[in-house]
Simulated scan of single mutants.
Amino acid sequence: MPGRQNDPTNPTDLTPTRKTLISTEIDYEREGFQTGVLRIPYSHDRSAYGHIPAPVAVLKQGAGPTVLLTGGNHGDEYEGPLALMKLLQRMPTMQIQGRLIVIPALNFPAFLNGSRTSPIDRGNLNRMFPGDRNGSVTAMIAHYVDSELFPRADVVLDLHAGGASFNHMPTLLAALPSDPARRAEYLKLVDAFAAPHTMIMDLLGEDRTYGAAAERHGTLFLCGEFGGFGSCNVEGLAIVEQGLRRVLHATGLTRGDSPPPPRHDTRFIAVEGTRHYLFAPRHGVFEPCFTLGQQVAAGELAGRLFDPHAPWERPRELHFGAAGMVVCARSFAGVAPGDCIALLASPATL
């Protein structure tokens, strides 16, 4: 449906004629398998009328749910993109009932650069929702997802990892709906994915994320962290691949598929506010006294922070503020004030 046209008699009428500046040859309503790109406008010194082509694939067969799968929200996280690239190899021969939209590397400039944020505008896509039609490259991507993809989707999965700065235990992240019927439907998907752990996340009030935006649209949203160090975790990749097959089957999209049985009965854990975060209080070199997956006690020594400019001085000892399991640990030994060093979680009851 064409947008409202500008009034040529009124020079101050600058109403946009298109909802989004990102275009694509993909027709989301067409039956069959399509591949193409999202053309993200990018005018710069060496390409006045250029764009960034971000690959996208769609498979639509008859009536049924729409499932949106994305990876590469951060460009240094690889388990999701690789699992989705492998899924793309199977999509032309898949038999489904509904629509499957797959974008392996959503923040494509960051993915090509192997960095958390975009090398073009330093945008962290997962902190820019709902985005901006007329904003930076990353803001335009967020706006396209929020205005064009979320309204079409019934179920959304966004696949993450710790990236270069973190190592994360393979964990599904969940935000449970308050409505009992939606909650039951949501937990069905959680059980189908069958990650070793499912974590109720506390982002300390952060509401600019992809997940927060998806929830505002009323979609069933799942996320997950499946490795780190800016590498591909073999175990994490297998969990993602098998979990995706089971979730697609549980939604009714791939009723004819026979996905592998779950390897885990997921254990629910929860991040409980700031007491489960360990932050660096100053610059230094951090010596950890814990390992990923370790159970720690409140007040237990977390590590020592050395001052490289005064190495003869006694290091500052940092202690955990609460008990829990270390689910995420910083990769880099060098820290600055405010850097997150570790994240804990405790057993949760639903």
Rank of each mutant, 00 (worst) to 15 (best):
residue 173 L to P: 00
residue 178 S to I: 05
residue 179 D to G: 05
residue 179 D to A: 14
residue 181 A to I: 14
residue 181 A to W: 03
residue 182 R to I: 01
residue 182 R to C: 04
residue 183 R to V: 01
residue 184 A to S: 13
residue 185 E to N: 12
residue 185 E to H: 05
residue 185 E to K: 11
residue 186 Y to C: 04
residue 186 Y to F: 14
residue 189 L to H: 14
residue 189 L to C: 10
residue 192 A to R: 08
residue 193 F to W: 12
residue 195 A to Y: 07
residue 195 A to P: 01
residue 197 H to C: 02
residue 197 H to W: 03
residue 198 T to Q: 03
residue 198 T to D: 02
residue 201 M to Y: 06
residue 203 L to Y: 13
residue 205 G to V: 14
residue 205 G to N: 10
residue 205 G to F: 04
residue 206 E to N: 14
residue 208 R to Y: 10
residue 209 T to D: 03
residue 210 Y to D: 00
residue 210 Y to H: 15
residue 211 G to Y: 06
residue 212 A to I: 04
residue 215 E to A: 12
residue 216 R to Q: 14
residue 218 G to R: 06
residue 218 G to V: 06
residue 220 L to K: 00
residue 221 F to R: 10
residue 221 F to T: 00
residue 221 F to P: 00
residue 222 L to M: 14
residue 222 L to D: 00
residue 222 L to C: 09
residue 223 C to K: 01
residue 224 G to T: 08
residue 224 G to W: 03
residue 226 F to I: 03
residue 228 G to F: 02
residue 233 N to S: 13
residue 235 E to A: 14
residue 236 G to I: 08
residue 236 G to H: 09
residue 236 G to W: 02
residue 237 L to N: 04
residue 237 L to Q: 01
residue 239 I to F: 00
residue 239 I to V: 15
residue 240 V to D: 00
residue 240 V to H: 00
residue 241 E to H: 02
residue 242 Q to M: 01
residue 245 R to E: 15
residue 246 R to L: 08
residue 247 V to F: 09
residue 249 H to A: 13
residue 249 H to Y: 11
residue 251 T to A: 10
residue 252 G to P: 07
residue 252 G to Q: 11
residue 252 G to L: 08
residue 256 G to V: 02
residue 257 D to Q: 11
residue 259 P to C: 06
residue 259 P to N: 09
residue 259 P to I: 15
residue 260 P to A: 15
residue 262 P to Q: 10
residue 263 R to A: 12
residue 263 R to L: 15
residue 264 H to W: 15
residue 265 D to G: 05
residue 266 T to Q: 09
residue 266 T to E: 14
residue 267 R to A: 14
residue 267 R to N: 01
residue 269 I to H: 05
residue 269 I to G: 02
residue 269 I to D: 00
residue 269 I to E: 13
residue 269 I to M: 15
residue 271 V to Q: 15
residue 273 G to Q: 11
residue 274 T to A: 15
residue 274 T to K: 14
residue 279 F to E: 06
residue 281 P to H: 13
residue 282 R to T: 13
residue 282 R to P: 01
residue 283 H to Y: 09
residue 283 H to N: 12
residue 284 G to I: 11
residue 286 F to E: 07
residue 287 E to K: 07
residue 287 E to A: 11
residue 288 P to F: 08
residue 288 P to M: 04
residue 289 C to L: 06
residue 289 C to G: 02
residue 289 C to Q: 12
residue 289 C to E: 12
residue 290 F to I: 15
residue 290 F to D: 03
residue 291 T to N: 09
residue 291 T to P: 01
residue 293 G to R: 12
residue 293 G to I: 10
residue 293 G to P: 06
residue 294 Q to P: 03
residue 294 Q to D: 15
residue 296 V to N: 07
residue 300 E to I: 04
residue 302 A to Y: 00
residue 303 G to W: 10
residue 303 G to V: 07
residue 304 R to Q: 11
residue 305 L to W: 06
residue 306 F to R: 12
residue 307 D to P: 06
residue 307 D to Y: 09
residue 309 H to W: 03
residue 309 H to D: 10
